[in-house]
Design a protein around this nucleic acid. Structure first.
Length: 283
DNA sequence: AAGAGCTGCAACCGCTCATGA
DNA sequence: ATCATGAGCGGTTGCAGCTCT
């Protein structure tokens, strides 16, 4: 006997959810909690399959969801996590409170992929794309051996012998480079220098808030040395991450702190989210 | 102004995997 | 061992809104 389909498709509604359907689902889950999705549509009075209800709840109706585009900080975090986890969107989403795997996947496919490709970075491997993908390589006369830092060359030891002067040199290269990102100019960084998301919005650091960075237009992110850098520069550093996989325990510990902060922030917004969604009288 | 083409996002589909009865 | 179920995933579709010509 084969597996029973998740729902009887005859007579079930498909396509966009209406406000009335949303309200029914919200009210049901508020009253009963999340349980046995298969029975949810029947009990909630919805002509939807359980899977559709679950997706609608997880991807859209959950009160702890953030709305709107991913902030620059979140985008950075997605790239960080994708470099380590690959296309495991749910794992990535689990590190980003208020965001869903579907949302992150969509954002990755529509925004981040393009950005990385434009910068000559393979979004799948986070490695430089083969040279033909890089637009208009500079003339031979303009290339210098010393400037080129390949990934093979970047495979350096992870001890503390990384010379700060060298990093400054690399940063200098970046500073003098044009706005067109060149993978040959990636600075070498150590695991202790891997960038973490800037502090979340809080009372003590208002300038790092999402809204401020988003509204400012050209957001800049501090590198390991606290120097403001562009998105391109930032990405040029993170593509080196997998070189030091063994050192990522500390990084993920810190990412965990980041997640905790997000949760705290979201908790504050929880009630207002519900109010907006279903009205004060139903809370 | 209008139609075509493009873009981004919500939603769906079909599949695998994990888990518990 | 088998089956039902939910979770998760990659791929895809449909549509509204935007941009281009």
């Amino acid at each position: 006997m084969g597996r029973q389909p998740c729902c009887d498709k005859v007579g079930l509604k498909k396509g966009p959810w209406t406000a009335d359907e949303d309200k029914k689902l919200i009210n049901f889950i508020l009253t009963n909690g999340q349980c046995c999705w298969r029975s949810v549509p029947k009990l909630a009075g919805l002509l939807r399959c359980g899977k559709s209800c679950r997706l609608r709840w997880i991807n859209y109706l959950r009160p702890d969801l953030k709305r709107g585009l991913l902030s620059d900080d979140e985008e950075k975090l997605v790239i960080h996590l994708h470099a380590q986890l690959g296309n495991r969107w749910s794992k990535i989403a689990s590190h980003m409170a208020g965001r869903t795997d579907n949302e992150i996947k969509n954002h990755w496919n529509t925004h981040i992929k393009k950005k990385l490709k434009k910068m000559g970075i393979d979004p799948t491997t986070h490695q430089p794309l083969p040279s033909p993908a890089v637009d208009q390589p500079p003339p031979e006369s303009e290339r210098t051996e010393s400037k080129s830092i390949t990934f093979e060359q970047s495979t350096i030891s992870t001890d503390d012998s990384i010379n700060d002067d060298k990093i400054i040199e690399s940063n200098d290269v970046l500073l003098v480079s044009s706005s067109d990102f060149c993978i040959d100019e990636i600075p070498v960084i150590g695991p202790h220098e891997i960038l973490l998301p800037p502090p979340l919005p809080d009372q003590s650091s208002p300038t790092t808030s999402c809204s401020s960075s988003c509204s400012s237009g050209g957001a800049s992110w501090p590198n390991a040395m606290g120097v403001a850098q562009s998105f391109e520069d930032y990405c040029s550093e993170i593509v080196n991450i997998d070189i030091w996989e063994q050192d990522f325990g500390d990084v993920f510990d810190l990412l965990g702190d980041y997640e905790s902060d997000l949760k705290g922030e979201d908790a504050m917004n929880l009630e207002s989210s519900w109010e907006m969604m279903i009205g004060d009288d139903q809370i």
